[in-house]
């Protein structure tokens, strides 16, 4: 094996860091967008056709560019934001651009599952749009939202491994430089195993949490 344990642990940390940080920023962007996507729909709380249309187009554009291309395409922007286009911190920028719109769609889906009747009941009680969103829509969708965000994290783990290919570090980097380019099958197997365990762990935690918040 061409790498030592420390290198593996460092790579794991980089993956966790990239995934975690980009997840956080993606939620900050994706959550409000997801809510906007829902409430600006026709016949919804704050129906607004122009806003809804523009949002949809923008999100679709980002969603249609494959991550590997997105990563390269926004290098100038990445440089502008973090000062460099190489390294773990630099990988976070394209990851956020990738996962933000994705999370917006996932959140939109979850919120749309909430029974229209609940919204109607909320309106009939004299709730403000804000109250309807935070006291009715989100609590009712919470369990489904947790599952959706779990999907997003798993997606980010995968994408972060790809970011390794352009020098972002992490397990993906390790697998490519040692496992693939230097034919070290053991390293390849170890990174894959770690990724599998990571995804399994995240998914199980997500399932558990989702069940827990079903009733709050």
């Amino acid at each position: 094996m061409l790498v030592n344990n420390e290198q593996i642990i460092e790579a794991l940390w980089e993956t966790v860091y990239m995934t975690g940080a980009s997840f956080l920023f993606s939620i900050i962007i994706g959550f409000p967008l997801g809510i906007l996507l829902v409430v600006t729909r026709k016949g919804h709380l704050l129906a607004n056709e122009p806003v809804s249309k523009v949002l949809n187009v923008i999100i679709n554009i980002f969603r249609s560019v494959p991550f590997i291309i997105l990563m390269v395409a926004i290098i100038p922007l990445t440089r502008l934001i973090v000062g460099t286009s190489i390294g773990t911190a630099a990988a976070i920028v394209p990851l956020v651009f990738y996962a933000g719109p994705y999370i917006a769609r996932l959140i939109e889906n979850s919120l749309l599952e909430v029974d229209k009747g609940v919204i109607e009941a909320a309106q009939a009680m004299g709730a403000t749009p804000g109250q309807i969103i935070f006291r009715f829509l989100i609590p009712e969708a919470l369990s489904s939202l947790v599952l959706a965000l779990t999907i997003a994290i798993v997606g980010l783990i995968g994408a972060s491994a790809m970011a390794g290919a352009i020098g972002g570090g992490g397990l993906g980097d390790l697998a490519i430089t040692y496992g693939y380019q230097r034919f070290d099958t053991v390293v390849m197997l170890i990174t894959v195993a770690i990724l599998v365990i990571l995804v399994q762990g995240v998914q199980s935690a997500g399932n558990l949490l989702s069940k827990k918040v079903r009733r709050s």
């Binding site: 029974d115 009747g117 609940v118 109607e120 009941a121 309106q123 009939a124 009680m125 004299g126 009715f136 609590p139 009712e140 919470l142 369990s143 918040v213 079903r214 009733r215 709050s216």
Partner: peptide, 17 residues
Amino acid sequence: RKDIGMIFQHFNLLNSK
């Protein structure tokens, strides 16, 4: 609306609460 209560065929309750 606060002066007008409403009940529904499918109750429309919050299942999470």
